[in-house]
């Protein structure tokens, strides 16, 4: 497999890459995302260096069934936001083959025109086996683009089914995209994806009458924490009412800030991410760590019925973490638990 030493030409240090990133260099951003995504040894350092420079950008997630128009909508929205002087990052996720591990990432096709705008950065990402509609590294990439100085970072999930709701716990604003004639009123009553939207979009309004779907959605969508999610009728193809969508996203940010919910979401996310990382580190330690005499003594006690496996596990964790090898290198202020091997 691979050697430990990368032989890429003039591979700059992580610190150098982060400096270039902060100066707005796209190649540095791309390289940092790759080394995080590939879980290179420098990934933890990169994330730690990037993190202090994040927290300004508005993270907006887009979810909805495959083919509903998420990529096209994002393309139009990016152009609208650019006309308002905003810098925009996009992370677009597509599925990895469970058979070959490969992927065809096609979201960029719809975004070809916007890709070369200097105020835009688009990155395609494969799920690499992660469920939930995102890749493990998705929000690390989002943070890289945040640190780069993007005002908004748009995240396109894989064409989600009914229960891929992870995005809602990660983004500040979740946009759920629907299109007409996708089912009767009961479809809009189902739990999951139709509960998580802060903004709803009924796209493809040029193809079919959206009124029934809009009425059904309006019937189901409730005010949450003082915010009533708006429903925007768009046609990404024709570019109609994209400004309304941009306005709705902007209003949601203003609402989050004025109501104190931005801060609350930040705290909730930090809490979740600390715990997820702790869980991951513990799992690694448990899987790879305990091999010493102390552990074998516990094994003996369980076999001899002097203690039970659960009590032994409690004692193992209490002894700590001590019984571990040097796994701490992999501790990282990451947005997700990271499986060491996939």
């Amino acid at each position: 497999m691979r050697e430990a030493v990368p032989s890429r030409p003039a591979a700059p240090s992580v610190r150098g890459l982060v400096e270039d990133l902060l100066a707005g260099d796209k190649r540095a951003a791309a390289k940092l995302i790759s080394l995080i995504e590939d879980d290179e040894p420098e990934a933890a350092e990169a994330l730690a260096l990037v993190y202090p420079h994040t927290g300004r950008a508005h993270y907006v997630g887009f979810t909805g069934a495959p083919g509903v128009g998420k990529s096209s909508l994002i393309d139009r929205l990016v152009r609208d936001l650019r006309s308002r002087g905003k810098k925009v990052g996009v992370v677009a996720v597509d599925p990895t083959s469970p058979y070959s591990g490969g992927a065809v990432l096609g979201d960029r096709i719809r975004m070809a025109d916007t890709g070369i705008d200097p105020g835009v950065f688009i990155r395609s990402m494969a799920t690499r086996g992660h469920a939930g509609g995102l890749a493990l590294a998705t929000f690390d990439a989002v943070r890289v683009l945040d640190a780069m100085g993007m005002d908004l970072v748009l995240v396109e999930t894989v064409g989600a089914g009914q229960s891929e709701v992870e995005i809602a716990g990660r983004a500040h604003t979740t946009v759920v995209v629907e299109m007409p004639f996708t089912g009767d009123a009961v479809q809009t009553m189902k739990a999951g994806i139709l509960e998580i939207g802060d903004v709803y979009v009924v796209n493809k309004c040029d193809l079919a009458d959206p009124d029934v779907l809009v009425a059904n959605l309006r019937f189901q969508i409730e005010e949450r924490d003082g915010w009533r999610p708006p429903i925007v009728r768009t046609s990404a193809l024709k570019g109609s009412r994209i400004d309304e969508l941009a306005d709705a996203i902007g209003r949601h940010r203003a609402f989050l800030e004025s109501s104190g919910r931005w801060e609350a979401r930040e705290r909730a996310r930090a809490r979740q991410e600390i715990l997820e990382n702790a869980r991951r580190i513990l799992a690694t330690r448990v899987r790879e760590g305990p091999t010493g005499a102390g552990f074998e003594a516990l094994v003996g006690e369980v076999v001899a019925r002097k203690t039970d496996p659960q009590s032994a596990a409690v004692r193992l964790l209490a002894q700590g973490a001590a019984a571990t090898k040097s796994q701490d290198r992999r501790t990282r202020p990451s947005s997700r638990p990271r499986a060491r091997k996939r």
């Binding site: 490969g102 992927a103 990432l105 960029r108 096709i109 070809a112 395609s124 494969a126």
Partner: peptide
């Protein structure tokens, strides 16, 4: 290439060298 385990970014038709 996908079936060989690679990640393929397909950018579609009518691209300029700059794109």
């Amino acid at each position: 290439l996908r079936d060989a385990g690679m990640e393929v970014i397909y950018t579609g038709l009518r691209q300029s060298p700059e794109d």
